[in-house]
Simulated assay, not measured.
Amino acid sequence: MADFLFVPYSSHGHVNPLLPVLRELVAGGDRASVIVAPNFAEAVAATGARVLRLPTTSHVVVPERFDPVDEYQRLVKALADRRAIWALLRGELRHQRPDLVVYDPMIPKVFDIACGHGVPTALFSTTYAQNEHVIALTVSRHLGTAVGDLLRTPLARRLHPWAVETARDHRVVLINALPELQPAADTFGRRVRFVGPLTAATAERCDDLPWPEIERRRVLLVSPGTVFTRGPGFFRTVVEAFADSEWLVLLATGPTAPESLGPLPPNVIARRSVPQTAVLEHAELFLTHAGMNSTLEALAAGVPMILVPRILDQRANARRVAELGAGVRIDAKLLHPQLLRLVAQRLTTDPAVRTAVDALRARITAQNGPAVAAGALREAADASCRFDHTSR
């Protein structure tokens, strides 16, 4: 039996993949403690893990347009939240020594604090990993191969903070992705384990959606994620594309108020949030921001994607899914009702798309991500215990 201390980044996209891993560990008799914001405490406690509650709620939202005042306030709160994490972590490490500290690359100082207390670490990343080869590929796309090749050196890791985290002396690095979605996957050593997707065993429904209608109609799910928001104009374009069509369109608007979209046609339903995995079980198409969690959930459900990314890792995910034939990437600036209709038609009628999606779904089905992740953490904890015993 091992004792784990987890320090996730308190947002939905980072905590949710951790939950099935916690369940797997606790069910196997291990102990798990988690430092987390109050709004995630109930979900974490439901896994059987011990909750170390941070003092403030975490709501990570990045608007479409940059606002210096909002950004300053967000940075101030983020710094306060991290100081609270560090205080809880130091207190926990002083009073009891876990076998392994498992942390998110968004909170890099955890590594230094754990090392200062002589406790080994594991990295838990909810998107693809970074190293000098991934950085070189990214730069090559923008500045050319010659510039990218200059960065194929370990010194290039310093250009990307997550690359620094991946390169550190961890017992194991867990990546919530498939190797097929990892750029330069063959350049990572055996210490890096690709364990995605990490999703709940059962998809929970909510009561305010017309599930009989969802089960019998062609469903288009639209969700730009919980962090990087889209404004009313984005959703209105989708509504215009599919208004009064055979599609039942479900919009997950997040921070954007559904009422700001104006009157909606009968075949369009807007909610701030929907149970994504439950809806994907019945969806024929998914319009997504291409975050890693959403991408994996869609592939696990066998649903092709219209990919409209916002930031670097989402763009890389979208590019790779499109290369694999499981979706079509669209620049948000080019989003237009007619284009959306044409892409939807292609994705739902092209046999090559169905073949690609089914192949990836089969690949996912063959891998029990939570069990693989839990097994890797147990191996790392066992190695740490043996190392400590030998060193004495």
Rank of each mutant, 00 (worst) to 15 (best):
V343G: 06
V279L: 11
E165P: 04
G302Q: 09
S33E: 09
F387C: 02
A177D: 11
G262L: 09
A283N: 05
I311D: 11
T365A: 15
A27Q: 14
V357S: 10
A203W: 06
N293A: 14
S260W: 03
D382F: 08
A362Y: 00
D112T: 12
P304V: 09
R218D: 13
P265W: 04
V268I: 04
E204R: 15
L221A: 08
R341W: 01
H95Q: 14
A301S: 15
L287P: 03
A322P: 01
L75Q: 15
L18N: 05
A298I: 06
R272M: 01
R217N: 11
R346I: 00
A177P: 00
T237K: 15
E379M: 12
R315N: 05
A318V: 02
A257W: 00
R31G: 03
A129G: 12
V110P: 03
G196I: 00
G196L: 00
G231I: 02
A383K: 11
H389E: 14
T138K: 13
K77T: 14
L150G: 00
L360C: 07
T277G: 01
W211R: 04
L287A: 10
V102M: 06
N131Y: 05
L248V: 05
Q345P: 00
D99F: 06
V110T: 15
R236L: 10
L261Y: 02
E204H: 12
G369N: 05
S10K: 06
L151M: 07
L307N: 07
K109A: 14
L181M: 13
Y103N: 02
H160L: 10
D388V: 01
P224F: 12
I269E: 03
